[in-house]
Design a protein around this nucleic acid. Structure first.
Lengths: 121, 121
DNA sequence: TAACTATGTGATTATATACTCATATAGCAA
DNA sequence: TTGCTATATGAGTATATAATCACATAGTTA
């Protein structure tokens, strides 16, 4: 049976905890929030790939892509393994991809609203 | 019956379109990627709120919160209405909240891995 | 061993973002 | 009208982020 830590002031601790969670969540979001990194995730949703192919797909310099990849790894969304000279990256947090459907929904809604506005003018 | 637009070079157009979509998706992610904005979304998931209460909850200056709110509105995640002196903000893209569950899952997994590592040392 | 390839990283520069303070605007109340 | 409150915004500063280039490293092949 687990022993609960005694809290001298539960409310303050909970509040502080809330802040930390927001910061961590924002960190992950920030890690995803770049066109090249979104492209990488989209490319990897169908299977693992090496840096050179990812760079081709993302139409960006390898050194730059390498940095973007390390950002995604350190936030826990991707993982990698070595295979000879190559480093193969793959999706670790697959649920991330569901989110893109949601975001695409937002974008479609926005586009619809703009279309309506356009017709009304 | 809808008339399809003729494309002189389908591949290039599709590729260009892909890029635009990645940029738009990244834009929405960037709009979400800040601790104060995450706090705002968490606060609004249970119902609409005015700026002053949001500022209290997010523990941040009103002028600052106002700016964060306008970022969330312009990316289509929030909407607002006036009520006397107050401006009331509410969640527009509710699906965004599902994503936070996914992110929380990632964080838990990371925490578990760290705990395992710690025990192994 | 040397030469080659794939990847990662340090340093620099350019750009974007966030916060603060002062001020502006809108609506309410006296 | 004046004074008050809630919200928004401009300007300045500080900080964070991204891209590029040069170079370093690791593994392969001859």
């Amino acid at each position: 049976m687990a022993i609960k830590t005694r809290q001298t002031c539960p409310r303050v601790s909970r509040e502080a905890g809330r802040r930390v969670v927001y910061e961590k969540q924002a960190e992950i979001l920030k890690a995803l929030a770049h066109p090249v990194r979104v492209a990488i995730l989209d490319f990897l949703k169908d299977g693992e790939q090496c840096v050179c192919d990812i760079a081709k797909f993302a139409e960006s310099e390898r050194s730059n892509v390498s940095r973007h990849l390390s950002i995604l790894v350190s936030c826990g969304v991707l993982e990698s393994r070595k295979e000879g000279l190559k480093v193969i990256y793959s999706l670790k947090a697959r649920c991330i991809m569901d989110f893109f459907e949601c975001i695409t929904g937002c974008l479609k809604q926005q586009a619809n609203e703009n279309a309506k506005l356009l017709r009304a003018i």
